[in-house]
Simulated assay, not measured.
Amino acid sequence: MTAAKAPSDRTRARRMHEKAAYERATIDAILDAMPVAHVGYVKDGAPVVIPTLQWRIGDQIYWHGSTASRTQRSASDAQVCVTVTLTDAMVLARSGLEHSVNFRSVMVFGTARALTDPAEKAEALRMMMEQMFPGRWEQLRPMTAQELKATAILTLPLTEASAKIGTGMPTDPPEDLATPVWAGILPIQLTMGQPIADPSLAPEITVPDHVKNYRFGG
């Protein structure tokens, strides 16, 4: 898919290398389209993978949790792998072996760093909210010092990141094309439902545009 060079040996695709993409524009687009990520690290000799929300600011990705979280404490200053995946279609072939999925994914490797400066933490949280729901941050009740203290934010540079993208129809071998079974792709689309107001919400408060227009997975 790309002639760009992998930024490191562990980001280089070894299988299906034709699906690899190393350009930052491609990597950024996938990260920006899907906030749900999985963070993997090793604790006490065993692998641990947690789901979380990630967001990108320039050349860094961020994720947050409670300062009391064992996961956040264990991942700080540790080697981690953050994975983001968009599933675009199921690929149905004429044999079980050739069934596949169309997808866009990113893997980011590196040493996670915990933000310690309160101003840096507050700005990172503001950016997360503004990227998802533009204009909402200024409408919210201001964050308290205790809330900020209780929130742990980890960050990882995008210096070791790579993407992998699968597209297209099934790749059945020629001898299977006459097999009388349906083959093709089953597209997957992420759609947002109608907003449901909190029952305690005052009736005069209407749904803001940043809620009506929110989308991800594009």
Score class of each variant (00 low, 15 high):
residue 4 A to G: 10
residue 4 A to V: 11
residue 5 K to T: 14
residue 10 R to K: 15
residue 11 T to G: 07
residue 12 R to P: 06
residue 13 A to D: 07
residue 19 K to P: 03
residue 20 A to M: 01
residue 23 E to Y: 03
residue 23 E to M: 05
residue 24 R to I: 12
residue 24 R to H: 10
residue 25 A to L: 11
residue 27 I to S: 07
residue 27 I to R: 07
residue 28 D to H: 12
residue 29 A to S: 13
residue 37 A to Q: 02
residue 40 G to L: 08
residue 40 G to T: 11
residue 41 Y to F: 15
residue 43 K to V: 08
residue 46 A to E: 09
residue 47 P to E: 07
residue 50 I to S: 11
residue 50 I to Y: 12
residue 51 P to Q: 02
residue 51 P to R: 07
residue 52 T to G: 01
residue 53 L to A: 10
residue 55 W to V: 09
residue 56 R to M: 05
residue 57 I to R: 14
residue 59 D to P: 02
residue 60 Q to A: 08
residue 63 W to Y: 04
residue 65 G to K: 00
residue 65 G to P: 01
residue 67 T to N: 10
residue 68 A to E: 12
residue 69 S to P: 00
residue 69 S to K: 01
residue 69 S to L: 01
residue 70 R to D: 13
residue 73 R to Y: 01
residue 74 S to I: 03
residue 76 S to G: 08
residue 77 D to C: 05
residue 79 Q to G: 15
residue 83 T to E: 13
residue 85 T to L: 13
residue 88 D to K: 01
residue 91 V to L: 06
residue 93 A to E: 06
residue 95 S to H: 06
residue 95 S to P: 00
residue 99 H to S: 08
residue 101 V to H: 04
residue 101 V to S: 15
residue 103 F to V: 08
residue 104 R to I: 03
residue 105 S to R: 14
residue 107 M to H: 09
residue 108 V to L: 02
residue 110 G to N: 07
residue 110 G to W: 03
residue 112 A to K: 08
residue 114 A to W: 04
residue 116 T to P: 04
residue 119 A to V: 13
residue 121 K to R: 13
residue 121 K to S: 07
residue 130 E to M: 05
residue 130 E to T: 06
residue 134 P to M: 01
residue 134 P to W: 02
residue 135 G to P: 04
residue 137 W to M: 01
residue 137 W to P: 10
residue 138 E to P: 06
residue 140 L to D: 08
residue 143 M to F: 02
residue 144 T to H: 05
residue 145 A to E: 11
residue 147 E to D: 15
residue 148 L to N: 04
residue 149 K to V: 03
residue 149 K to T: 12
residue 157 P to I: 01
residue 157 P to R: 02
residue 158 L to F: 03
residue 160 E to K: 03
residue 161 A to N: 10
residue 164 K to D: 08
residue 164 K to F: 09
residue 164 K to L: 10
residue 169 M to E: 12
residue 172 D to A: 05
residue 174 P to C: 04
residue 180 P to F: 12
residue 180 P to S: 09
residue 181 V to D: 03
residue 182 W to F: 14
residue 182 W to M: 04
residue 185 I to A: 12
residue 186 L to Q: 09
residue 188 I to N: 10
residue 189 Q to C: 06
residue 189 Q to M: 11
residue 191 T to H: 08
residue 192 M to W: 00
residue 193 G to T: 14
residue 194 Q to Y: 07
residue 195 P to K: 00
residue 196 I to P: 05
residue 196 I to V: 15
residue 199 P to V: 04
residue 201 L to T: 10
residue 201 L to A: 15
residue 201 L to G: 08
residue 203 P to K: 03
residue 203 P to N: 10
residue 203 P to M: 11
residue 204 E to I: 06
residue 208 P to I: 06
residue 208 P to K: 06
residue 210 H to K: 06
residue 211 V to T: 07
residue 212 K to S: 11
residue 212 K to A: 14
residue 213 N to A: 09
residue 216 F to Y: 11
